[in-house]
Design a protein around this nucleic acid. Structure first.
Length: 508
RNA sequence: GGUCCUUUCGUCUAACGGUUAGGACGCAAGAUUUUCAUUCUUGUAAUACGGGUUCGAUUCCCGUAGGGACUACCA
């Protein structure tokens, strides 16, 4: 890479940052780090009607949680600021006017109603052209039809206006995308997009090109939904005379619903029970609350790892667990897939588990103690560490650690009906009574000794392991789950174990 | 409808003209007549279809069919 790499993540503060946005940010970040470049955060808030309070802060906190440190932004500073478009408003007017002056754009005065009518008319005719483009612009109310004189008069009189890009009549364009190769476009079916709105704000298209140019952005890495706008954007660079410094483009494939059709949405998360936002989010308008990956108990490292591998793969490896540093070294846009990927919440959990399992038991114990405390139970570090070692294999999240082992501390009050039906037979109560009497005589209640003596007892009495140990587990834990039963007995201790079995025989 | 993009196991993907098409998630079976969401082992399952180009196509080209995006004074 011969030029300095400068990439930006440019979200609109219209709500929580969703998974698509997270991944776009991540790929930009990885690309910047790989090439020793800059990762810039720019807030695109040119649509005042969609502004959501708190959204910008949410985006920043999310990036922080994931671990994507920003090099330039309004908070971080930088020599190309301000980094929020509403604070750059004054800049865009001159560029829009320059385009008009050079004949690449024009003033238009059509009302929203008139535009709507035109759209309906074309739809009724089943016309395959855009509402406002090379084919129709001469039938509309604009500088081209009114003439420069009248246009000037109308502007002076304060008539509301927009500035539209004048799409070339008929030009075949072949554009380059790093991920997709060549992209074809025909300007004759494109439309004269609004660049400058009647409220004095630029649209995305104008602001984006002006800012990318001014901020010396080298690579535009964004979602596939922008691919149809690429011809317009290229034409804008050309109209401004900036083609020699134009950034390279890479359009990322979209993240799709785990099932069914279409783009992943917040609803899918609610419906299928997985988070679609990094952090907890409460929509200030609807009051709707969404749990985030953080709340669900995901490690940010696991989340980042999983997101990086969605639509990208380093190639020629079967490795799936990567540190952020490894990803920074390995990342290339050429290895980004072209097709959209369906999101798999199950694999998510697997990633999290991998990250949890490498932590030492002492570390896991902290989460365990926290969970216990929430239920009003004090647990020593030593005991928590031991139990974590016993149960961690069957957990996906750190909060499962406590949830999966409450029976170590709380005697069961209910018994799993399915297990009961399976293991609690007519002769079982007698058997349990006999067994508990035997256990009362065992002095050494260590797992090892319990296994030896109880196994011997089972054999002496010509019983089977299943007939004895399954019901005992049911009485001890309330269900047939958990680690090795002799480990449970040892941990519970002689007194508690016997008590649980005896009361269980009556209660079940 | 129009335009553009896209297409390898159910899912995420590897293989950038020559592989018994590999891995992971999931699922299933066994180890396990002591449970289990663990572990290990094994298994399941894919190049959308039709034409080319080539000694040889998952890979290159063209159609067809699926999928996706866009089609706002939203980004």
């Amino acid at each position: 890479m011969n030029k300095e790499v400068r990439v930006r993540f440019a979200p609109s503060p219209t709500g929580a940052l969703h998974l698509g946005g997270v991944r776009t940010a991540l790929f930009n970040y990885l690309f910047a780090r790989k090439h020793g470049g800059k990762f810039i955060l720019r807030i695109e808030d040119t649509d005042q009607t969609r502004f959501v309070p708190g959204a910008e802060d949410y985006i920043i906190r999310s990036l922080e949680w994931i671990g994507l440190d920003i090099d330039e932004s309004d908070i971080k500073g930088g020599e190309y600021g301000p980094y929020k478009q509403s604070n750059r408003k004054h800049l865009y007017t001159q560029y829009a006017e320059q385009l008009v002056k050079d004949g690449f754009a024009y003033y238009a005065f059509d009302t929203p109603d008139e535009l709507e009518q035109m759209r309906k008319k074309l739809e009724a005719e089943k016309a395959s052209i855009q509402c406002y483009g090379p084919a129709t612009r001469m039938t509309m109310k604009n500088q081209l039809t009114f003439g420069d004189e009248q246009t000037k008069l109308m502007l002076q009189s304060g008539a509301p206006y927009v500035i539209r890009f004048k799409m070339p009549e008929s030009e075949k364009l072949v554009l380059k995308d790093i991920i997709r190769g060549e992209i074809n476009a025909d300007t004759s079916i494109l439309d004269d997009k609004v660049l400058y709105k009647s409220d004095g704000m630029p649209t995305y298209h104008l602001a984006n090109i002006v800012d990318d140019h001014l901020m010396k952005i080298s690579h535009v890495i964004r979602g596939e939904e922008w691919l149809p706008s690429l011809p317009l954007h290229y034409l804008l660079y050309r109209a401004f005379g900036w083609t020699d410094t134009m950034p390279e483009f890479a359009h990322l494939p979209l993240i799709l619903k785990p099932d069914g059709k279409g783009k992943l949405s917040k609803r899918d998360g609610d419906r299928l029970g997985f988070p679609v936002f990094p952090l907890h989010w409460e929509d200030p308008k609807s009051g709707e609350v969404s749990k985030g990956y953080e709340e669900y108990g995901y490690f940010p490292e696991a989340f980042l790892n999983m997101m990086a591998l969605l639509g990208w793969n380093p190639g020629n490896t079967t490795q799936e667990i990567f540190t952020k540093e490894e990803l920074c070294n390995l990342f290339t846009l050429e290895h980004v897939n072209k097709a959209g990927s369906k999101f798999d919440p199950e694999k998510n959990k697997w990633f999290n588990k991998q990250y949890m399992l490498v932590l030492p038991n002492e570390e896991l114990a902290k989460y365990f103690i926290e969970g216990a405390k929430a239920d009003g139970i004090e647990v020593s570090m030593e005991k928590a560490t031991k139990i974590c070692g016993l149960v961690k294999d069957r957990c996906n999240f750190t909060h499962d650690l406590w949830k999966e082992s409450t029976y170590f501390f709380i005697a069961p009050t209910e018994y799993d009906q399915v297990n009961k039906k399976k293991f609690w037979k007519e002769e079982t109560p007698e058997l349990m009574k006999k067994c508990v009497e035997f256990m009362k005589g065992i002095a050494d209640f260590s797992a090892k000794n319990l296994e030896d003596t109880i196994s011997a007892w089972i054999q002496e009495n010509q019983l089977s392991f299943g007939k004895v140990l399954n019901p005992m587990r049911l009485l001890l834990c309330g269900a047939c789950k958990g680690p090795h039963i002799f480990d449970i007995l040892e941990d519970l201790g002689k007194e508690e174990s016997i008590k649980r079995i005896e009361t269980g025989i009556e209660k079940i």
